[in-house]
């Protein structure tokens, strides 16, 4: 599904990704771990198309297409979803209105008819249960005045509504207490399917207790320096990142 090869990306004059390789197949969950500043969020941002980053070398193939060639909204329409580390507050636009616009744009891209108000509400009700989110939250301005946990749940709710093929969760666990973490993880797990893939970017192993990955990769200095099964996460939790750093030198 996703094939990243020798990816180099910079912000300003600073190179952050320095030859990153990663293969993700449908049905798989990949965890990307690593110390602060390794380039985890940069990877998530580059995949979603954030314009602050410049890709200087390498390629990203997504379902046989050149991902780097696509506009941000085109990537979303093709099924890429980034759950933000810091979801943005959008005053004056309700979550409901926002999602209806987004969903119908994506449907238009796929050649599907737009959902009418009744169909949309039905779908929304169904997905609300998934992340235990309240109706009143959804009629408010998007993320405005939401608590940290509410913002993250809203991200997963949006993901459930848009049904992406490749979901990228950028530090979704940061700022969550254990109950919120469980709700978020439940939402992600219920969306697991053989034709979807998920990349979980996280600093801590904690989230991986709930979202069990098929593969764990360690990102350090802009490259994946170690990959392994889910047990690698436990090892990292126990030993920290220093041994990885030593190995990588």
């Amino acid at each position: 599904m996703l094939s990243i090869s020798n990816l180099h990306a910079s912000i300003g004059n600073k190179e952050i990704l320095r030859g990153l390789n990663l293969e993700v197949n449908a049905g798989e969950i990949h965890a990307i771990m690593g110390p602060n500043g390794a380039g985890k969020s940069t990877l998530a941002s580059v995949l979603a198309g954030r314009e602050d980053y410049e890709v200087t070398d390498g390629s990203v193939q997504y379902n046989g297409k050149d991902l780097l060639d696509m506009a941000i909204e085109e990537r979303a329409a093709e099924g890429i979803f980034l759950a933000f580390q810091y979801p943005v507050e959008i005053p004056g636009v309700s979550t409901t209105n926002f999602l209806k616009t987004a969903l119908n744009e994506i449907r238009k891209h796929r050649g599907q008819e737009p959902l009418d108000a009744v169909q949309f509400l039905k779908l929304m009700k169904e997905k609300m249960k998934l992340v235990n989110i309240d109706q009143s939250l959804l009629s408010r301005s998007l993320n405005e005045g939401f608590s940290g946990g509410e913002k993250k749940r809203n991200e997963i709710f949006q993901m459930a509504m848009l049904e992406p093929k490749l979901a990228i969760l950028d530090e979704t666990d940061s700022g969550l207490d254990i109950d919120a973490l469980r709700i978020v993880a439940d939402g992600v797990n219920q969306l697991r399917s053989p034709d979807r893939a998920t990349i979980v970017v996280t600093h801590y192993q904690r989230l991986l207790d709930y979202i069990v990955p098929d593969f764990v990769h360690v990102l350090y200095k802009g490259r994946i320096v170690k990959s392994g099964p889910k047990e690698l996460a436990l090892e990292l939790e126990e030993k920290g990142y220093d041994w990885i750093k030593a190995e990588a030198v």
């Binding site: 979603a48 198309g49 954030r50 314009e51 506009a71 941000i72 909204e73 990537r75 979303a76 329409a77 979803f81 980034l82 933000f84 979801p87 943005v88 507050e89 959008i90 005053p91 004056g92 636009v93 926002f98 999602l99 616009t101 987004a102 969903l103 744009e105 994506i106 891209h109 301005s141 949006q158 848009l162």
Partner: peptide, 22 residues
């Protein structure tokens, strides 16, 4: 905000209009 909206599939011009309208 524009990036956030576009990352959900809303085209740039429409995202801009939505934000300004709001």
């Amino acid at each position: 905000a524009l990036f956030y909206m576009r990352s959900r599939g809303i085209p740039k011009d429409e995202a801009r209009t939505l934000l300004l309208y709001a």
